Simulated scan of single mutants.
Amino acid sequence: MNNPTKILLPLSMIFFCVTSCSQKKLDNAFEGKIKRETIAFTTKMAGRILKIYVKEGDLVHRGDTLAMLSLPEVTAKVAQAHGVVKAASAQHTMADNGATKNQLKQLQAKYHASSEQFAFAQKSFKRASAMYADSMMAPQAYDEAYAKFQGAKAQLDATTAELNEAKKGVRYETKDATLGQQQQAAGVLQEAEVAYSERYIIATNDMAVETITLHEGELATPGYAIFSGYIPNSTWFRFTVPESQIAQVKKGSSVTVKVPYSEEAFNGKIVTIKQMPKYADITTAYPEYKMDEAVYEIKIIPEDTKKAEGLLYNAAVLLPRSVGTSK
Rank of each mutant, 00 (worst) to 15 (best):
F227T: 01
A203D: 06
R36M: 02
E264Q: 14
Y146A: 11
G217T: 15
D176N: 08
K327C: 04
L163R: 02
K24P: 07
P72D: 11
E303N: 11
N267D: 11
S114I: 01
M68H: 05
K123L: 06
T65M: 01
E31G: 12
L50Y: 09
Y279M: 13
D281R: 13
W236P: 00
A185N: 11
I201N: 00
T38M: 05
H92E: 05
E198R: 01
C17T: 14
Q140E: 15
T221M: 14
A247Q: 04
S12P: 07
L311H: 12
V241K: 03
K167A: 06
T159Y: 00
A81I: 09
G223R: 14
A154S: 14
A121E: 05
Y289F: 13
G223L: 12
V170N: 09
H92I: 02
T93Y: 07
D304R: 14
K251M: 06
K299Y: 01
V295M: 14
V295C: 12
Q182M: 12
N164M: 01
V323F: 06
L50H: 12
A166K: 03
F118H: 07
F227V: 00
M137D: 00
G83V: 05
M291Y: 15
V84Y: 09
Q181G: 13
A109E: 08
D292C: 09
V18I: 13
T19Q: 08
